[in-house]
Design a protein around this nucleic acid. Structure first.
Lengths: 257, 257
DNA sequence: CAGTGGTCTAGACCACCTT
DNA sequence: AGGTGGTCTAGACCACTGA
């Protein structure tokens, strides 16, 4: 292959602060991540090999390896023995996270707005208790919201939470649900999502300003917190002509199964 | 907390073969993964700490750490400093992989069958070239298949591939697309997926034995191979009353972004 | 306080790719 | 043959958890 700039290792500008509380491997991976996501590093760009980089930064090779490994897991880098470490194609960079799946409209610059339609405290019946992994009769909060985009209603969002996780009505009317949870110090570990389709019923079509029988995207989500407890269960309905769910799967993550 | 069996570390039966070509960390993680996925280890079960386990197996602590780290990334284990390593809730175990998203019916015991409706070789027009990341005029293969489940049509699957990745018609009529790709030695790295909804048109409703205007789940997928090239682009349509897309997101994976 | 996972080091050898 | 990432070791110290 003809030599070109992609094949000359890019020397990322990294300064290591050994007094910082930030782990060294993060101090290595974060600047690289930022360069790739900002588009400054083009797809296919070769990086320094890990031995050279560790010598230049005066950190151990395992530390650089850990940083590179994290970037590979995030889909930003691809490595090949003998060949080196390169930036992946931008397709892979559009990786979706736990929060962005729900707060993604903000980023898209679509002037989002969310109205809280109802906020109810009640005791869990059998079905809801099972959805939340709690016992029947536990106090739960049910929230119904309407999400707007460009001054048109886009989705109906219904969520139930055990009362100890639920944000207050006022917090919720100001910020998104995930934002409130994070502010309350609740750390989410994972979320299981089911996406399907259905036709709009009477109430749904009225709320969303659609004709009855219009196609809707349905999502059901169960969010789990670090210790394994279920934080919330949500059923959302979106206008299918204006909303799709996007996500990326990685082969690596399934290597064990 | 009252002492119970979950809080007594479970000693996983692991034998290390140092002559094997399988990495030691895999020899540690794989049996644990199998025990959890088979349900033999209950949610919340405490495992040995990594120092004890590494001593028992006569491997170094970083090797055991690597194994545990992989199991955490796969969603099977959760670790907390000072507290230990425990099996996560089964919610998280239903993790979806690159292939299972498309070959998942087989597992569900639904007697799947796939008919190849058409198999065409052509030159990529502008739109298809962009979808596949190749130049206009490249030879591509377009495949249309009908997937059955329990002797009822379930989905229409349309895929395009650069001709060098495309399986032969005969291979395709015997095995799933992903199966063929794997057999051809093509290693997938990631796939970006978009899920939405629409109403069935005339041809779709005929093929799927549905009324016109029935709700369909639509998926679009771009699969990328190790070196970053696009392997295939697929547009699938499914009967929404019988099919949903399920997947799990992990917080860890997004830590960098 | 003791126990646990999190980070880091400075090496070593091997497998694979490219030239 | 040389360069690259993949694996593995035997330690060390720190931060957090729980009793």
């Amino acid at each position: 292959m003809a030599s070109n700039s992609l094949d000359e290792p890019y020397l990322v500008d990294i300064t290591i602060d050994r007094d910082s509380s930030i782990p060294l491997h993060t101090q290595v991976s974060e600047p690289i991540s930022a360069l790739i996501l900002s588009g400054e590093l083009p797809a296919g760009q070769l990086l320094e090999d890990e031995v050279t980089l560790s010598a230049r930064l005066h950190v151990s090779r395992p530390t650089v390896r850990r940083a590179f490994h994290d970037l590979v897991a995030a889909g930003l880098l691809a490595r090949r023995r003998g060949s080196g470490t390169r930036v992946t194609l931008p397709h892979i960079h559009r990786k979706i996270g736990l929060t962005s799946l729900y707060d993604d409209l903000k980023d898209a610059g679509l002037k989002p707005r969310t109205d809280v339609l109802s906020y109810e405290v009640s005791l869990a019946d059998e079905g809801r208790a099972e959805l939340l992994g709690c016992t029947k009769g536990t106090e739960i909060v049910k929230i119904e919201r309407l999400r707007w985009s460009n001054d048109e209603p886009l989705g109906i969002m219904t969520n139930i939470l055990p009362i100890e996780f639920a944000p207050s009505f006022t917090d919720l009317s100001r910020h998104g649900l995930y934002h409130c949870l994070r502010d309350a110090g609740i750390k989410l570990a994972s979320a299981t999502q089911r996406v399907g389709a259905k036709l709009a019923g009477t109430r749904e079509s009225e709320l969303l300003h659609l004709a009855e029988g219009s196609p809707l995207v349905t999502t059901e989500r169960t969010s789990i917190e670090e210790s394994g407890r279920i934080v919330e269960f949500g059923r959302h309905l979106y206008d299918a002509n204006r909303y799709q769910v996007t996500f990326t799967l990685f082969a690596e993550a399934t290597a064990l199964q």
